[in-house]
Design a protein around this nucleic acid. Structure first.
Lengths: 337, 337
DNA sequence: TTGTAGGCGTTATCAA
DNA sequence: TTGATAACGCCTACAA
């Protein structure tokens, strides 16, 4: 119950030194003599003093804290981005508050609100799948509040976004299937309300066009790209026996589809080749191992947080999109012998 | 830059109503007339008022916030525990601050410190592998500060711990290997400084004893149970060709060992059967699929947070260990034909 | 180098 | 039902 009961005033009284001096000493100000400083630090230790950050943040109007909102922390990609953010933040002396929106718009809105009422200095966010209305960002952005969007950018005008080159990667992925002999390539696509999935879709289309392949609507399956969606997609595929390759907008769906197809006696990649997107750890381990796109996750976290800290400290808003380069990881699922 | 500039005083001036009334209205106090309340809420909305939680927390000396420290958020188990915690917290109106120690003692200590200086009402923690000194908890516990340990308990006396029955699960896992014909069973063990891994070790020993199997020190491999440790263990195993089964204290190590052994031409489970621990998502997907122990992760989060909220609100300290039941998931890696 | 005094934004107490 | 006032713990001009 005594938690944090000791204040600078207790130290002050205890030593007969004014609390302002105590405050200065605890902040290692040069305006306190070495001797007094030592005395104060010793007494603080002895009394079990613990600074009340709330008070100091309130007073200074600076929290040295940033908020991070991701759809789900369990996704390897987001966990890595967070690690990148935390590393930069640690060096810069910032605290990081991690939140997950669970891809719900309501939750996301509430989280933004909570972070702001806790006066974070800035926010890094990968918007949820459920978000189609961006008003909750617009208001703050207009006030110059630092918000940076990563991976899943904000679709309204003038923002600082960090994305990867989904279009190029998707084109490359689809092209890879074509060059490995696929003639009828399906696409597992995410919600087209989301820019990111539109870009992946466009990459797929671009590859087909490049090779003068016809675009067949019935080969394009839009879903939320969860595990169960993969099974659903697989079932649809079985009805279209000419399909011999799949480019999936994420690994999760590709993998669950592959699993299902294997139970139905399909040979992978001989009957159907697969390329995923994300390079989840699981993808290297399944059989056949999944060819996929590796995203520079850790780097993305570092870039995003570095930009945010610049924005916080220089009050300069970039409103510019940074594009990072992904990489095609070729494994067994796409190589027909 | 205007972030949060509007305060209750602005609303107060704007309406000619005292700020104390504004405060009451914003907190939906019954001591404000409906009419005034409406007027205030409307004006707040209009001015874009956003409460300053820091000030409110400072004043009330209550943050309605709990801290959660886990080794790494990317581990599926911890992500699920966190989901359980967040669900309970959401219903109880608490904010949750998620932190990862990355299994570093230094980081953990710092995180505890940061959380306390931010005056969280309580802490839920799964201690890091690097932690062997518990002084940083002792101090606060003695002050009655609510801390609850889950999964990896605190080894010093009198704590509230939530664990699963590792011993029973490990005994069952090892027994399962024995009943499936394994004669020489190895154990991949975690650091014996950690209670949890000692319990898993004991379960392994107990099973051997139950069936009068000799305990062979050279069959027990202690490591930090990371991916690379699995490869190392696999190499050691190859030097001991009599080993025909492995009980691993986690899935990660089991899987990387299996992968390596497969590249070396071993047939799994025919040559060597495997049982892991944790039921990582990957375990269902690899080949052969990994028999493992499923832990009630989400439930553990709910139980731990519920206990914490009780402790916070009733000021009653349980200092009691709650044991949850794990479950053996039998898959292909342990069934020799 | 140290002390004085005032305020960050909110809420609780008391009085009206 | 509303208002005045003080205080939460800290920091920072300014003065000494």
């Amino acid at each position: 119950m005594n938690k944090g009961k000791i204040t600078i005033h207790d130290i002050s009284k205890n030593l007969g030194i004014d609390s302002s001096t105590v405050s200065r000493a605890l902040n290692d100000s040069p305006r306190v003599s070495k001797k007094t400083k030592e005395k104060i630090l010793k007494k603080a230790e002895e009394l079990g003093y613990q600074r009340n950050s709330l008070a100091s943040k309130l007073r200074t109007n600076r929290t040295n804290t940033i908020g991070v909102i991701v759809p789900r922390i369990s996704r390897h990609f987001f966990a890595s981005v967070i690690s990148g953010i935390e590393e930069t933040a640690f060096d810069a002396g910032y605290e990081v508050i991690i939140c997950q929106s669970l891809d719900s718009y309501e939750r996301e809105k509430k989280l933004v609100d909570t972070l702001l009422s806790n006066r974070v200095d800035g926010i890094l966010i990968s918007i949820s799948m459920g978000t189609t209305n961006y008003d909750h960002f617009e208001n703050y952005k207009n006030n110059g509040f630092p918000i940076i969007f990563f991976d899943r950018p904000c679709e309204v005008s003038k923002n600082t976004n960090i994305i990867i080159d989904d279009l190029k990667a998707s084109l490359e992925a689809t092209e890879h299937l074509i060059l490995n002999g696929c003639k009828n390539i399906a696409h597992f696509s995410g919600p087209q309300t989301i820019e990111l999935y539109r870009r992946r879709y466009k990459g797929y289309i671009a590859a087909l066009e490049k090779y003068n392949f016809p675009i067949r609507e019935e080969f394009i399956f839009e879903s939320n790209l969860m595990k169960q969606d993969g099974i659903q997609c697989a079932k649809e595929i079985l009805k279209l026996p000419e399909i011999d390759g799949v480019f999936s907008a994420n690994d999760v769906t590709a993998i669950s589809a592959m699993q299902y197809l294997k139970t139905q006696g399909k040979k992978l990649p001989e009957d159907i080749a697969f390329v995923g997107f994300s390079n989840e750890p699981i993808s290297a381990v399944i059989e056949p191992s999944l060819t996929t796109i590796n995203q520079p996750d850790f780097e993305m976290g570092k870039v995003a947080s570095t930009l945010l800290f610049n924005q916080i400290n220089n009050k300069t808003v970039l409103n510019q999109t940074t594009i990072l380069e992904p990489e095609l990881i070729i494994r067994k699922s796409s190589i027909k012998n």
